[in-house]
Design a protein around this nucleic acid. Sequence first.
DNA 1: CTGACTAAGTAACACGTGTTACCTGCGAGC
DNA 2: GCTCGCAGGTAACACGTGTTACTTAGTCAG
Lengths: 342, 342
Amino acid sequence: MPSSKRSTSQDVADLAGVSRTTVSFVLNRLEGVNISESTRERVWEAARKLNYHPNASGRKLASGKSNTLGLVLCQSPEQVFADAFLPRVIVGVEQAAMQDSFHVLLKPVAPDDMTGYARLIRENHVDGIILSGPRQDDVEIIRLHKEGVPIMLMGQLPESEIGFVDVNAIEGAEIAVEHLLETGHQRIGMITNAPLSYTSAQQRRLGYLQALEKRNIAPDLALIKEGNYTPASGYHAMKELLYESPRPSALFIASDVVAAGAMLAAKRAGLRIPQDLAFVGFDDIPMAEFMDPPLSTVRLPAYDLGWAASDRLIRLMRGEGLDQGGVFLESQLVIRESSLAA
Amino acid sequence: MPSSKRSTSQDVADLAGVSRTTVSFVLNRLEGVNISESTRERVWEAARKLNYHPNASGRKLASGKSNTLGLVLCQSPEQVFADAFLPRVIVGVEQAAMQDSFHVLLKPVAPDDMTGYARLIRENHVDGIILSGPRQDDVEIIRLHKEGVPIMLMGQLPESEIGFVDVNAIEGAEIAVEHLLETGHQRIGMITNAPLSYTSAQQRRLGYLQALEKRNIAPDLALIKEGNYTPASGYHAMKELLYESPRPSALFIASDVVAAGAMLAAKRAGLRIPQDLAFVGFDDIPMAEFMDPPLSTVRLPAYDLGWAASDRLIRLMRGEGLDQGGVFLESQLVIRESSLAA
DNA sequence: CTGACTAAGTAACACGTGTTACCTGCGAGC
DNA sequence: GCTCGCAGGTAACACGTGTTACTTAGTCAG
């Protein structure tokens, strides 16, 4: 142990017999500066010997860059709890960030403190923000964007210029419902993944409606119930749906987690899946394949979504003028037993 | 908009007609310094007017504190994917941190890059670390601890002095198995949540063995299969177990996610749950209550676990000499249909 | 021999804050 | 009148780095 205190670039400079400037040049691999090979090696050697690690705070202050991005989750704690989708997104964000030597600061914000995340950026903790699940009534985000803060949305915000990454949820929902139509179902109900104030809920509902419209089926709004991310909400929504008459013969449920609750309620009511009631979910969480019966669903590229958001945000921060606007990732129908033809 | 550039404490000082020192004193609410009430108000007013937010980097550099803690996840990406337990932990960590104005930096580390997280601390990105799921073969963590880095483990590391927060997994597993014994089962199998190199897997297995021992039942090691966090691993482990003869009449599965796969395999084999085969899981993920049948399980206080880890780490960093050693949170048996007496 | 040019390296400033040691004026005690 | 103490404040240093502008010695063409 060379010293008990943490060593600085000055220590390295002293040991190598050069100036601090030179140390900075060498260690940051700056090109275009003339430093002899022998000096470079002396510096590296000294740094290694002193176990030198540059202080991030000093670096951030001098460079103005924090090399950190904020991942802001706009969901209530209860919603995060039940979100089996989240871990994959996080890993995707993290790995793309790591590739560019970025760190990830996590910030869940409660709906009642929606401006909380602005401090992250105003106090320069992060260089940019990924906003997952933006709310329509979020005004802060627009203000930040106007100030020139790099922002990437995961999910969309209608009528906004902010760049985003999203799954093609409308289309995803549409193909899910089309699949049900093709297997002969006419009366198809829906349970949303979340309250309709969330864009993602709106979109999936829209896809459902579009699929019906294409077949000239008038939607029965009584067959659309609202979920809120939890299996319990699916359970209750299903019980309500069972009162509808005539009963739907198939359900599109815009979240696998919610679908788990709904399927249980259906089975409890004595219905067989898929013979009496077919199910298609949304998300393809790891457990979907092992539900009883295995749940047909729309696979969202969760990892890719996180990865793309992270990657695009970093490019944006670097000023690489990527075509603003959004990027859509393809979702994919996965057919399992819960929707097999009767 | 007063200015296009971000304002500094100097700007505030100028506008308020005082020195930068005074601004710092006032805004940080320093006690014991004599600043007149009128001056204080002028400073606050100026700060408000300029929309001043102190620069975190400057602050960190000057104070030496980053007010950030690192949450390090020692799981492979695949394991994180299937971890339905994680979101609750994260929210717990986050909320406790927020209470003390701390930020949370997330850092998943792959098993092949186990020292990656050390840079977080060596470069002063974070003041301390929460290490979730410590590996026995992790030597870096011991080195850091010896250097005086504040560390809090989520989960235990045998023969280590590092403070930790953990659920009483041994006891939790024990009561789960006891419950099965009490309902008349004699031949009880087990599927672990993860490979045995993970401490958590070891502990749950130990609890299982202890429960059997207390009843003088010799364990049959052939009835212990290994899972790896995923429902698929549970499915395959279950299929292996079905070959054992005589077949167990009950199973303790050390992870609800893994249990989902196992239950499906059992049902596919024509077994009724719980009549032919009883199940008890572990974790109480949100979906457990809505599996078919609803899964008896051991409820882990995931949120509390995250909260406690965060809270204790922060106290540790503040030098509040909390009794080192560990804290155990109580787990609790939740009985549902999957283990009701036949 | 001189001037221009280059390789190799450095002094000095900037970044924005926290904090210590000091200064000033004023009222009070003797 | 003189000192002491205190309320109210500030100058100046420290934190550790990135970066620009500059210096110095050496080389080479003319």
